[in-house]
Design a protein around this nucleic acid. Sequence first.
DNA 1: GTCCTTGGCTAAGGATAGTAGCTTTTCAGC
DNA 2: GCTGAAAAGCTACTATCCTTAGCCAAGGAC
Lengths: 191, 191
Amino acid sequence: MPRAGLSAAAVTDIAIAIIDDEGVEALTLTAVAKRAGVAAPSLYKHVRSVADLHDHVAAHVVAEMRERLAAAVMGRSLDDATRALMRAYRDYVISYPNRYAVFPQAPPRNPDLAAAADRLLDVALALLRGYGLEGTQAVHAARCLRSVAHGFASLQAAGAFELPENLDISYDYLTGMLTDGIARIAADQAA
Amino acid sequence: MPRAGLSAAAVTDIAIAIIDDEGVEALTLTAVAKRAGVAAPSLYKHVRSVADLHDHVAAHVVAEMRERLAAAVMGRSLDDATRALMRAYRDYVISYPNRYAVFPQAPPRNPDLAAAADRLLDVALALLRGYGLEGTQAVHAARCLRSVAHGFASLQAAGAFELPENLDISYDYLTGMLTDGIARIAADQAA
DNA sequence: GTCCTTGGCTAAGGATAGTAGCTTTTCAGC
DNA sequence: GCTGAAAAGCTACTATCCTTAGCCAAGGAC
């Protein structure tokens, strides 16, 4: 039995490839094993469980998204940065429609995943700090930002928007709501 | 073997009870059969498959939500109605946190479920018509409404908002963004 | 060259969805 | 009331998936 040269990272990569090709519901240990050219139980040398594999994939997705969002806001500020962040968020979903399904919604109990999520949140908080938002008001603004971005992204990833009307325009309206709303929250903070 | 007196509706009710009690991931035919006091294969007399059962539950949830939203906007118009709709949307999630997880995001292929979803959409479209929104602009506005309401609701249902900051305030900001945004879309339509 | 860690394997067990085919209940129609 | 058929149960079985247990070979450290 020649070694397949697997590793935790390689298994995660295969899992992501499966998700991209066949959707998140196709991600089973059997499917991973088949692609890796290995018997299913062998995967347990690299992965604790299927849930653990899911967490690894999610951590990868969150980190990848954080990179993109951070790059997008880099060198920008205020509404310009907010628009860039929203654009990057949606671009990610368009690039990898199936990956967004593993994006964690509940606060993750897996520490690595939680750390990745925190680093993603930091990007948003840095953006909001540019508006002078701190503390309580920053929390409200972050919740709004997250709700809007996630709401649209999850619906788009799920294929909810069927009508022929231009999605870019819809998203521009949504982005405009958000920038105006953040300005409002910042004004309340100043008051 | 005395009859248990099951029916498709009774099975759906049991499924909903399981979701309420234990979450959507606990909904299995075995669990339903146990509560119904029946062997698992017997359920196939009332249900086509587990996916079919899911669709029935989803149709129930969508119809229930439509009733609540329709009642909330009744007798109101414009921003007053929008605020009432948003409030009712969130109240539903608070009432039945586990049920929202079966809310269909992708356009359902099950005809009954699709019909229920259409009737829910009608409530939103009627609301938007009050703003003078029709056609393309109504589509954009409906997408915004849906994204915001769904984004916040799905995150809240998943338990995403952990911080002690008052959620009502966050949601009020979000609602304010939406009413302002709809006004903007309506203004663009008038232009 | 030997030894130990590592990464494979097969075998097996438990949960779940679903099918096949049988039996009993129930009830409509006579 | 009897009868016959549809409806609603059942057991037995298969397939898929996750997971554990325990064995064996590969391959590097010394």
